[in-house]
């Protein structure tokens, strides 16, 4: 998908990650963000149902889902922090640690696998200097992981960079794609 197609879909600001992990926690759900959550709550008969959406907001604002963030969400939705953690750990898309500014997910499930997805992964690992799946590059910019079927198997190999979905990536296209992220 070309980026202009999804104009308006801003990627979260991952720049402050490392700092964020060490600084005192400031509340996420205040002002405009709190109003966003309040609107979401009107959509469901229970507060608990707003948990996944609330965690998405948390991750959008902070780049990841921290323990403190889980406590804040738990209080707002009248749940226990342990319950919230149980839910967070079930799903693969909530980051429980800060990740690189660009979080790159490459599909390697069979349909993409038989179209050469492994080579795409290798190209990303080499050109991002991350070396190993799941590790963040020394400059904090990239994290590369393998992901299961992204639901775009006819466009092998699909790759997600943060919120952006890119179709038909080949190893040759990787350097240009990364250069564009600069």
């Amino acid at each position: 998908m070309t980026p202009d197609l999804i104009g308006g879909l801003e990627s979260p600001d991952y720049a402050s990650h490392d700092r964020a992990a060490h600084e005192p926690y400031t509340l996420v759900f205040t002002g405009e963000v709190k109003r966003e959550l309040d609107e979401l709550l009107t959509r469901y008969p229970t507060k608990m149902a707003a948990l996944l959406p609330a965690l998405w907001i948390l991750q959008r604002e902070r780049g990841w889902v921290s323990e403190e963030g889980m406590v804040e969400v738990a209080e707002l939705l009248e749940l226990t922090p342990a319950y919230v953690k149980g839910v967070v750990t079930f799903y693969t898309m909530y980051h429980q640690h800060p990740v690189g500014k660009y979080f790159i997910q490459v599909c390697t499930t069979s349909p993409c696998g038989i179209c050469g997805a492994e080579d795409v992964v290798k190209a990303f690992l080499r050109h991002t200097n991350t070396g190993e799946l799941g590790l963040t590059s020394p400059d904090g910019r990239f994290t590369v992981i393998e992901v299961e079927c992204l639901g775009a198997c006819g466009f092998a190999t699909p790759v997600m960079v943060n919120e952006e979905f890119i179709e038909s990536v080949t190893p040759e296209k990787v350097p240009d794609l990364l250069a564009r992220l600069a």
Binding site: A50, Y94, E148
Partner: peptide
Amino acid sequence: KGAGAYICGEETALMNSLEG
């Protein structure tokens, strides 16, 4: 919006997920 789990396509898992 789901959060990454194939199993949430199974209808009763979907309902649990929707409930938070």
